[in-house]
Design a binder for these strands. Structure first.
Lengths: 224, 224
DNA sequence: CAAATATAATAGTATTACTATTAAAAAACA
DNA sequence: TGTTTTTTAATAGTAATACTATTATATTTG
C-alpha cells in the first residue's frame, strides 16, 4: 500500500497552488494536520502555522485561499484515499454481502495505520474528520461550494457504497440515507465516546461501534 | 399545550441574568432565534442583535456571557421542551412499542407548529438545532462544559428514550448508540436534504426521514 | 422622593482573517 | 554563466469580531 499517494488526485479548484508541488506545500499540509488535531480548527491560524513551519503567513496564502479551503482540501484528500482503499479491498470479492461488510468496516473503523510515504498522517487526519469535518459544510456557503464540487469525493463514496447496498437488496428504498447515517453516525459516536460518553455504549477494545453499525445495516436490509 | 413554557426550566448556570425575567431578555432570546436562523451562527453577533432589538451590545452581555452561551441556552430550551412533550405524549400509553414509536416520531419529525404563548418560535428553533447545534459541542471546551452540565437536557432525553428501547428489548446491547444515531442522523438528513441532497433519499411530502428511522429502529431491535 | 438597579452609549482592546507591497532567495533557461 | 522568472519572506495595514470597562441616564422599588 505504499504507493497510495499516487492515486490521490485532488480537484485543483481547492487550492491556489498545488501543495504537492513543493516542499513548502507539503509542510503546510502536514503541519496543518498536526496543528488542527492539537488545538482545534477555530484556534488554528495561518499565522501560527507559519511560525511552526518557519515560514510566513502570506506564503501559506499563496497555497490556500483560506483556512476553510485548507480544511476542505484535507477532507477531500481523506475521502479520495478512502475511495481508493475501498476499490482495492473489494476488487476481488464476489459476494455483494461481503463487499458491503468490507465497505461498512472501512467507513466505521478507526484508522490505525499511517502511510509513511506521504506527507499526510492518516491517523490524525481521520481524527480531524471525526472532530472537525462537520464545520466544512455547516456554513452559509455550502450551496455555492457544493456547486463548485467541493464535496464530490464524499458524495462519490456514499454513492458507491449505496450501490453495494442495492446489490444486496435492490428493493431497499433508502440506501443513501442508510450509508450517510452510518458514516456520520460512526464519526459522532467516536466523538461522543471521547467527550459525551453517556450518549454511547462505547467500551474500549470491544469494537462496539463497528459491531453496532454492521448489525444495524444488515438488520435494516433483512440480511443476516 | 399553551402552558408549555411553565415547564421549561433552564439551568441557571447558562445565563448571567435570566432572560425570562425581563422584556429585554425575552426580546434577546426571541430575536436571536430569528437572526441565527436567517444569517447563521457565525455571522450572528451581539452588535447586530442589539440593533435589531433597539438595544445595545453591552446590555445583551448582561444576560449572556457570549454568543456561544446563548446557543447553549437555546439548545437546552429545545431539549427541555422536547422532554416535556415526550412525557406528555406517552403518559397514558401502555405498550412499550407504541411508546417507543411515539418517541422516535417526536425526535425525528420536523417541528411544524409554534406555541404563540412563549417568546420562542419553536419552528425556527428546531431549524437552528438542525443547522447549528453541532457547533455547540464541537469545541475545545466540550469537556469542561459537559462537566458544568451544559448538555444535561440532551443527555436526559437520550437516556429516557434508551430506556424505552430497553423496555422493548432488554437484551439490546447499544440503546444509547441507537438513539443518538437516530437523533443526530435525522437532523443531518434534514440538513442534507436542503444542501447535499444526493446524500439522502428525501422526497417532499413522503415522510421518508420518519419512515427510514422508524423502520431502522424496529428492524434493529427485531420487533416489527 | 431617595436609593438601587437596569439599560444605553461610548470607547477601547486583542485577535482574526485576510490583502497589498516589496525585497530577497531560489530555480529555470538561454 | 548571467539573466529572467518564479517563489518565498517580511512588513504593514484593514475591517471585523468578541469581548471589557466606564459612565450617564432611565426605570423600578422601598
Amino acid at each position: 500500500m505504499n504507493t497510495i499517494s499516487v492515486h490521490i488526485n485532488i480537484n485543483s479548484g481547492l487550492y491556489k497552488k498545488d501543495p504537492k508541488s513543493s516542499d513548502l506545500g507539503k509542510r503546510i499540509v502536514s503541519k496543518s494536520i498536526e496543528m488542527i488535531h492539537d488545538i482545534g480548527f477555530e484556534d488554528f491560524t495561518f499565522k501560527k502555522l507559519g511560525v511552526e513551519i518557519t515560514s510566513n503567513e502570506s506564503s501559506i496564502y499563496r497555497y490556500f485561499e483560506s483556512k476553510h479551503m485548507l480544511l476542505i482540501y484535507l477532507i477531500n484528500w481523506y475521502w479520495s484515499w478512502l475511495e481508493y482503499r475501498l476499490a482495492y479491498k473489494i476488487q476481488n470479492i464476489e459476494s455483494p454481502k461481503d463487499k458491503l461488510e468490507i465497505a461498512i468496516n472501512l467507513l466505521v473503523q478507526e484508522v490505525i495505520d499511517d502511510n509513511d510515504f506521504s506527507s499526510i498522517n492518516e491517523i490524525l487526519l481521520h481524527k480531524i474528520i471525526v472532530d472537525e469535518s462537520s464545520k466544512a459544510y455547516h456554513t452559509k456557503s455550502v450551496d455555492a461550494e457544493n456547486e463548485k464540487g467541493y464535496f464530490k469525493c464524499y458524495k462519490r463514496v456514499v454513492k458507491r457504497v449505496s450501490d453495494l447496498v442495492l446489490e444486496c437488496n435492490p428493493d431497499f428504498e433508502f440506501p443513501h440515507m442508510l450509508i450517510s447515517t452510518v458514516i456520520e453516525g460512526a464519526h459522532q459516536q467516536r466523538y461522543f465516546s471521547q467527550h459525551l460518553p453517556s450518549l454511547t455504549d462505547f467500551e474500549k477494545g470491544k469494537n462496539n461501534i463497528v459491531r453496532f453499525y454492521t448489525n444495524l445495516v444488515f438488520k435494516t436490509l433483512h440480511i443476516s
